[in-house]
Amino acid sequence: MTVGVAVRGLPERAPSVRRGRFYLWLRRRSTIAVMMCFPLLAIITCLVAYPFAYSIYLSMLNKAETAFVGFGNFLFLFKRETFWLVVQQSILFALVAVIFKALIGLIAAHAVNTIPSKGQRKWRGMMMVPWVIPPALSTLGWWWLFEPTYSAFNWLLAEFAVPAVPWLSDVFWARFSVILVNVWVGAPFFLIMYLASLKSIPEDLYEAASIDGASAWQKLFHVTLPMMRNIIAITVLFSIIVTFANFDIVRVLTQGGPRNSTHLFATYAFRVGIESGDIPLGAAVSLFMFPALAILSFVILRNVRQRTVNI
């Protein structure tokens, strides 16, 4: 029994002695790193950073993009009532929708986590459906549910002798509807985030709490929620960004109506910039989102920081 007699092509020869080669190799390592990151850098620079800078420049031009008007577009927006409606609706939309998404997500995650683990996958799978369908398409379904003449919801209400609801034509109900659809689309995301974080809480913490005589509510408030705090914070902040910048739902459901009452920054910018052809004004509208996004991102980053430090 002999092991590995012939070893071919391995340096029986004394390896070469020059120091230079090592530094060459070192250099090559960082060169490789930069080369590997280059496509990413190119995408970020050309398609994110540059457009952003360009957007600031654009927002200071006149409609024909021929003259520099400074803050003219911004001042013009300040004087428009519609713009303030958009600001108000965007904030209302983001906050109310996120609160309900977070609540539904939390309750659903708890419910799923309570039932025997055999059935959890099935229930979770069913509740993920809204999040899996492209939102523009599922909103189409909602639109049909809200359709004034044929509304299937109103048909149900009529069965209980409740008068028909003007889902998309009344200001209050239109706002209600876009928020409802957004909650429907976004709640599953909270569900899976919370479920993952619920499952990562070690079981013995609950056992220790039981031995200490904690009730179910006390366990929820003293074990579960504190353990989930970080993930709840990140998910909520993240969802505020996404909801605040939403476009699809409002665009398909109400196109901003009735009387511009459901416009968000994104849909309003689209209306002004693409549809009415005033690109600089549209750029100015979407830039108004930036401060809010920047602050939220900064807060998220502080939560996520630990991980990047470890890399």
Partner: peptide, 15 residues
Amino acid sequence: IGGGLVNDVPPKDRN
């Protein structure tokens, strides 16, 4: 290693 200076030799070539 084996008489040859390996300071600058990458691991795979040190045998």
